[in-house]
Design a protein around this nucleic acid. Structure first.
Lengths: 245, 245
DNA sequence: CGCCTGTTTGAGAAGACTCAAAACGGGTGG
DNA sequence: CCACCCGTTTTGAGTCTTCTCAAACAGGCG
């Protein structure tokens, strides 16, 4: 049986029992492969599946009311659960688009209900992870709402870097970012033109370096100082959870 | 025994069993009263309590790295669970401040663990509510990231209105907003000066009316058209949940 | 009555946006 | 291998939105 990305993620926080791991592995059977840029689900579609990222990464976005423009809400990486809005409503709230080539597994929401019934500790852990993601989103909101254009872009880069480090080991400073500057602008609330200018400035200031869409974080401390970035994914407390089933 | 605000909230979505209701009521015992403006917990404090809003409302905010300024992340109303970040970390991530006079009950996180162990259906419902709140936050992020100053303020007013309607019945169009324009600015990412100007314009355009801090939504359709606002709290699907314990 | 906090108004500056054109780069077909 | 094409990035110039600083105004409270 294949390794479950969700199990791997949760084991980062807590040693799972065989039973728990088995339950997660049983779930991630139906895989789907996507090429970079491909759309997994569109906002407004009726859907009662959740998705687990097995490999690669994606982003979730919302269309603006006017029709023109969108906001990229967040990014999803290996082990992340996508489409949770389907737990609350029949219609999907955010469009999910592959950033890189990726593999996702789907999970009918009733099966998540099963897990909640049989494995309370997993349920609690999932809840804690959701709480952590919420805080990460609050951080992004703070960035978008109150920071300068440069700091917004810097926050985004640090955020992506932190998430990639989870899977790729802790010392990465260079990564491919298969996003156009338009995409980056949609994520941080800026025009593509202004993104270009600010990136160039970050580069001239010696904080980042670029060749094509390969980015290098040159002066991480300076970027952190500028943004107050905190990695919210490194650890999650588990002492309050019930014991394993 | 007192009525539990959390139970009332959850019953909006699902008829609870006596057992489930009892479990929630048993929890909300230790109350605390706050006056408008009072701080419940400060960002960075070590704390392993969650809080349930019993009455009134509060907001959660994050300080900016530079020290000066803050972002108000979201508002909490009767039945909302606050301090979920304490599930994931020892230190509280957001400062909680009372907007109106209010009553909150506290809940040691281990007791939430108990609920997850004994009442899987409640656990699932809480998870779905968290997912809904996440989407509401995504909406706010879209507003802050991509909309005009006027639309941002309008979104905030509609959001608050929608939440107040849940407790006060569906037809409210007038409400007290005990927030300064500085606070409003902190919520939507604008200066207090600009908030003042844009409010005046919304008023002149006949969309809202104000006397002091009492607001009236005059032309709700126009405001909705301008912002694309959707009320995310009205309903939550429950068909995927396991059966009651 | 005076004080304090919050709101309004004004004027000028800064940041981000629009429109437009030019440069770049990767991919395709000749 | 080259020329062309497309989408993306860069650069420029001018405009609009939002911010800053500052002062006047309003309202509630001791």
């Amino acid at each position: 049986m294949r390794r479950s990305a969700l199990a791997t993620r949760l084991e980062q926080y807590l040693r799972l029992s065989d039973d728990e791991r088995g339950a997660l592995e049983a779930i991630e059977q139906r895989e789907r492969r996507l090429r970079g840029g491909e759309v997994l689900v569109e906002q407004g579609e009726v859907n009662d599946l959740l998705y687990i990222v097995e490999q690669g990464w994606l982003h979730g976005s919302a269309k603006l009311p006017g029709g023109e423009g969108r906001q990229i809400i967040r990014f999803y990486y290996a082990g992340d659960l996508m489409g949770l809005s389907n737990l609350a409503w029949a219609k999907t709230a955010t469009t999910l688009t592959a950033v890189s080539d990726c593999i996702v597994a789907d999970l009918p929401k009733a099966e998540l209900g099963e897990i909640f019934a049989r494995h309370p500790r997993l349920a609690g852990l999932l809840y804690a992870v959701a709480a952590a993601e919420n805080v990460a989103m609050a951080d992004r909101m703070t960035s978008v709402g109150r920071m300068s254009a440069q700091a917004r872009i810097a926050t985004l880069l640090l955020d992506i870097l932190a998430r990639l480090r989870v899977t790729d080991g802790g010392v990465v400073t260079t990564f491919d970012l298969p996003l156009t500057q338009q995409d980056i602008g949609d994520a941080v609330g800026l025009t593509k033109v202004h993104v270009s200018r600010m990136m160039t400035e970050l580069e001239r200031a010696g904080m980042i370096a670029r060749t094509g869409r390969r980015y290098k974080i040159v002066d991480e401390p300076a970027l952190v100082a500028m943004t107050g970035f905190v990695d919210r994914y490194r650890s999650v407390e588990t002492n309050w959870l019930p014991t394993a089933a």
